[in-house]
Write a protein that binds this DNA or RNA. Structure first.
Length: 421
RNA sequence: GGAGGGGUGGCCGAGCGGUUUAAGGCGACGGUCUUGAAAAUCGUUGCAGGGUUACACCCUGCCGAGAGUUCGAAUCUCUCCCCCUCCGCCA
């Protein structure tokens, strides 16, 4: 959420910044609401001051056994008026907040301009895609051939976009979770295992609600949302809190299942594990001081890259342009891993700096040592990494001519085998 | 699911319609004292919105959340949320 005051004071600046992300904005209604709100606050405050003053007077008169009836009569009218103003104020505040909740974050100055994903810019590459002396297979072909994936039965049990992993496939899924969590915790991230059903306040705090309800799964009775990423419960750990400066930075890593409707992606990645309604992911989340957030963003991205490097998976880093940036993010690097089965790079991690956008929604602040007042923290997060897509990358990059798959060195202690098949 | 108890400032804990501008204690910070520390003592001690786009000053709101009664609510009423204890059930 953007700051009401800065929107109010610099409407043209805000408009310009959001235009870069193809966001047409009419701030007129909001500015009207703010004007109305400030007038109501002023009137209500003045009347409440009067009520407080006269109430004391009434108290004094009664104690002195004098007649307070005329004052009480007058105050009836004042109280009624205050109530009217408060009702109006509540309504106006709600409308102003509703407006702000639908505005996306402002891109950082270092983000390249662009209309859509074609405008994204490659920053660097790591590793060299392997030369195959045979035609590399898709991961789903490898999976079915090795008997470690069963999409048909997954569809019977749940439906399309679900998977059933078996034997070494299930083991690989678990090995990756443990490998990543162990690596992340060694770097100072605290492991957490949060709820995967959350309330609407949490979804609003990180920016999924109110705008993206259609992308979420929801339970019927009682009402909960299934998390689309661990970012939601983990960022909301500190919702409504004021942290002491010396506690910062706070780093968390969490494994969770993630659930996405994938509405509007019909026909995309219909086969295989790439796009599922349910998938596993290990996430990295940081709470930092504002002046540190861009350095922390680089380091967080580096931590995610480290995982790919240790697994020997070629990848590239792409900075998202203004038009492709997610709703809540000020800047995002995508990590794209090389998939021989598709002969292209595919997203495996998304590392974002949200600056104070989520912190303002979720009211996560900190107090500087020795200073009065509070400031919003900056929040960041990134996949470290998406488990299913990492599994896909391993199968496709480490496949052998005979259909077997070599397990990357770093993973062998977790897999208890050197090879699948 | 049933029956009780409870949510007050960083923490503990009083208050149960108008000397509460929330007692008192602890902690923290600052001063005095001390060679230094401790002890003692004095003072300060939140967040947010607005008045001025100054943390000097003034006003307002905030005692789990919301609504109500009243001239006046931390205090009374209602609804909801959360926590604790016991019973039942259960992974």
């Amino acid at each position: 959420m953007l700051d009401a005051r800065s929107v109010r004071d610099n409407p043209e600046k805000i408009k310009e910044a959001l235009a870069k992300r193809n966001y047409q904005l009419d701030l007129g209604p909001f500015l009207e609401l703010e004007k109305e709100r400030l007038a109501l606050v002023k009137d209500a405050d003045e009347l409440r001051e009067k009520r407080n003053r006269v109430s004391e007077e009434i108290s004094r008169l009664k104690k002195e056994k004098k007649d307070a009836a005329p004052l009480i009569g007058e105050m009836k009218g004042v109280s009624a008026r205050i109530k009217e103003l408060e009702d109006g104020l509540r309504a106006v505040e709600q409308k102003a907040r509703d407006f702000l909740l639908l505005l996306p974050n402002i891109p950082d100055g270092s983000v390249p301009g662009g209309r859509d994903e074609a405008g994204n810019v490659e920053i660097r590459k790591w590793g060299t895609p392997r030369e195959f002396d045979f035609e590399p297979l898709n991961h789903w072909d490898i999976g079915e051939m090795q008997g470690i994936m069963d999409f048909e039965r997954a569809a019977k049990i749940a439906g399309a976009r679900f998977s059933l992993m078996k034997g070494a496939g299930a083991r690989l899924e678990r090995a990756l979770m443990n490998f990543m969590l162990d690596l992340n915790t060694r770097k100072g991230y605290t492991e957490v295992f949060p709820p995967i059903l959350v309330n609407p306040e949490s979804m609003t705090g990180t920016g999924q609600l109110p705008k993206f309800e259609a992308e979420l799964f929801k339970t019927a009775d009682p009402d909960f949302y299934l998390i689309p990423t661990a970012e939601v419960p983990v960022t909301n750990i500190h919702r409504g809190e004021i942290l002491e400066e010396e506690r910062l930075p706070v780093y968390y890593t969490a494994y969770t299942p993630c659930f996405r409707r994938e509405a509007g992606s019909y026909g995309k990645d219909t086969r295989g594990l790439i796009r599922q309604h349910q998938f596993n992911k290990v996430e990295l989340v940081k709470f930092v001081r504002p002046e540190d957030s861009y350095g922390e963003h680089e380091r967080l991205t580096g931590d995610a890259e480290d995982i790919l490097q240790r697994l020997g998976l070629p990848y590239r880093v792409v900075v998202l342009c203004t038009g492709d940036l997610g709703f809540s993010a000020a800047k995002t690097y995508d990590l794209e891993v090389w998939l021989p089965g598709q002969n292209k790079y595919r997203e495996i991690s998304s590392c974002s700096n949200f600056e104070d956008f989520q912190a303002r929604r979720a009211d996560i602040r900190f107090r500087r040592t020795g200073r009065k007042g509070t400031e919003f923290v900056h929040t960041l997060n990134g996949s470290g990494l998406a488990i299913g897509r990492t599994l896909v990358a391993i199968l496709e990059n480490y496949q052998q001519k005979d259909g077997s798959v070599v397990i990357p060195e770093a993973l062998r202690p977790y897999m208890g085998m050197e090879k699948i098949g």
